[in-house]
Write a protein that binds this DNA or RNA. Structure first.
Lengths: 133, 133
DNA sequence: CCTTTAAATGCAACACGGTTGCATTTAAAA
DNA sequence: TTTTAAATGCAACCGTGTTGCATTTAAAGG
């Protein structure tokens, strides 16, 4: 399914920056840092980029990963839909080359603690990627 | 062990802001948002606060939790030492009242994926705390 | 207790991403 | 083609992170 169709299916108007974002993020399975996204899409205003990312996240087309320094990384959602935005994956950052990738988890993780009710879990791991070790 | 002794033991000079930070974070088992920390310690320059937090983190006396919006939360380290800064806990944020707390995990978590080597893992969960559900 | 010095602090300044308001443009429905 | 709600661009502000540098201070040594 092409990007335009995907947008329409999620009640989003087909615009240049939306196609550009989906195109950029679709070129790799890695998560892209915000700064790189902004550089690639420099022809657009950064406010527009900001709001477009919000819109695409809200519709579950993309998701954001936060690294320890607070840097944001964005990636396409392959396992999300409008109804259930669920991530059965963790975000892994290679401390050597710096790439961030989504890694599928074998099964849904369940944590529990007395008294509390857990809705969602985010996992961020660091180490060496397959190219760097 | 009092704060001054703790600082000396970690080769840190005993200064007013360091005592104040340890005192503030020690008053609760919850993690404090940066903004609250800055408000409480408004008598000190924010650069000093910034560098002091870095120093205390480097020595393993405190640690930082990042929430989804990128907000930083700080808490004392109870299970860290100079040699092994390890967290067998996750950070839990109540989406109702907003408090962030460290929750001990029953056992060390192990994840693996083909080709990659994982050094450390950070887990952030969201849901309702015991007061709010 | 006094001197010395490396470390800590305060201040200024800048970078960057997040965020909002508002006027203009545009996608797409009628 | 007209219409309109949505999307965009621009300006502006905020908070946090970060660095350089001059001043102050903790604490070691005499």
């Amino acid at each position: 399914m092409d990007a335009a169709t995907t947008l329409k299916k999620h009640d989003l108007k087909v615009t240049k920056i939306r196609l550009a974002i989906l195109d950029t993020l679709g070129k790799t399975e890695l998560a892209k840092p915000y700064a790189e996204l902004q550089a690639t899409l420099a022809e657009f205003d950064r406010t527009t980029l900001y709001r477009t990312l919000l819109a695409l996240m809200e519709k579950g087309l993309i998701h954001k990963a936060l690294e320890e320094n607070g840097e944001s990384y964005y990636a396409l959602c392959s396992d999300c839909s409008i109804e259930t935005h669920v991530h059965d994956h963790m975000h892994f950052k290679c401390t050597t080359c710096g790439v961030v990738q989504c890694i599928e988890l074998p099964k849904r993780l369940k944590f529990s603690a007395p008294g509390i009710h857990i809705d969602s879990i985010e996992i961020v791991a660091k180490g060496q990627c397959s190219n760097c070790n």
